[in-house]
Design a protein around this nucleic acid. Structure first.
Lengths: 239, 239
DNA sequence: GAGTGGTCTAGACCACGGT
DNA sequence: CCGTGGTCTAGACCACTCC
């Protein structure tokens, strides 16, 4: 492989790790060896290793080398669910076949004091306020409560809300740059009881998302209320 | 500032952003200007900007520049809680004055089939199995259920479990390198009812942590069950 | 002391955004 | 077309691990 770029090196190493090729020593080859093998620069090799570390596959120790992290079948399963995608579509990505969105409420309104305190939007600006229920395998699993800054997004209709709002954004050239997210467990509200399949549970998970466009402006405040026991959020912390 | 290192540049820029110095243009100076101002290299400047982006303060756009993200007082508050520390101590870091740990159970046992399936530890190895309740401001807020690989950690005693296990690790030269974490909302178990101040709630949050040492070996499986409404987990997603 | 990753310099060229 | 950040090269030196 001549002059492999960062991504080729990353993919190749990832494949080998998952295939167990480095399992004996539980170490990656040293940087100089990888540079030689891939006929690449130290920059590209280090970037590939950084990506493997971000995936939770390896850990670099100064003076010792790049160590492979144990991964039993169980910890592999542990890694399945994702939390770094855009809309709520990601919650059930590819896991479920049957999926439906019910638009419960679709309004345009002006941000008042109370809504401003909740959403961090300025008082007086127009927003779309949308409530939708996600029905997964026939179960009312997620209640999405969206507020979009109407001045900074392309026009929305109820029909679009029934499909994917994020896809609509993408088509119209609006790019979500950064999302700040907060996860909480909350006592269920009357609206949750009304719209979600809570069973005997009286709490919901609440994922609050604040999204920014590539101008740095907040365009969205969303609460996603989800039923217990069905959703996992994974995360990796490195020292 | 002559020959400022990455961290000095990062701190200086962060301070200025928070002080609103770049608020007019909502842009950072271009890389070449920063290189000149700090008499530093492009490497250091770019690394500092990368750190600012990881903090959710800025966003880089190729061809346009480094954009500041809006941060209203509310979104600032939104950023408060952390989720990237080690033990459960972090959950209430500096927010609460009164804090106590009750050790409910402290055992050594051998991993059997069922525990192996749950914790990803191999069948047959010895583990410490510890249950502790964290009492915050007089409220039984968190139930910690720990399993530590006894062969890979320094000896534990009930007295240590009453204090901080992680501090004990640190003192004895055991370094936690990586933690894989999963967040869920679950129906409360009988143990949760018994030990936590659930009030009328019948669910808990469950933070499952799998920790690895700097040899890449799993040393810990922990479930932290926490009561609703009191804890926030923050996260930043960038495109 | 030898080996290894971490930091840093000084450049070159490319890809994208806006005019 | 120009300005900007993204990728990449080819080195130097430092800090840490381990023998």
């Amino acid at each position: 492989m001549a002059n492999a770029s960062f991504n080729e090196i990353y993919q190749a190493l990832k494949e080998r790790i998952l295939a167990g090729r480095y399992s004996v020593k539980m170490r990656l080859p040293i940087e100089d060896e990888l540079i030689e093998e891939f006929h690449s620069s130290r920059y590209a090799v280090r970037k590939a290793i950084a990506q493997l570390a971000a995936d939770g596959l390896v850990y670099s120790v100064k003076g010792r080398g790049v160590v492979l992290l144990e991964h039993t079948p169980q910890t592999q399963q542990f890694n399945l669910a994702l939390n770094n995608l855009n809309g709520l579509q990601s919650l059930n990505a590819e896991r479920h076949l049957d999926y439906r969105t019910d638009v419960v409420s679709f309004q345009r309104r002006i941000v008042d004091q109370a809504l401003s305190a909740q959403t961090a939007f300025e008082v007086g600006i127009p927003v779309y306020a949308i409530q939708r229920v996600r029905v997964v395998d026939g179960v009312r699993a997620v209640l999405d409560i969206n507020y979009f800054n109407a001045q900074r997004i392309p026009e929305l209709t109820q029909e679009i809300a029934e499909q994917s709002i994020y896809r609509h954004f993408q088509k119209n050239g609006l790019k979500i740059a950064v999302v700040k997210r907060m996860l909480r467990v909350e006592t269920a509200t009357p609206l949750d009881y009304q719209l979600l399949a809570l069973g005997t549970n009286n709490c919901v998970g609440n994922m609050i998302s604040i999204a920014f466009n590539d101008q740095g402006r907040q365009i969205e405040y969303t609460e996603s209320h989800f039923i217990p026991n069905e959703f996992n959020f994974n995360e990796l912390i490195r020292n």
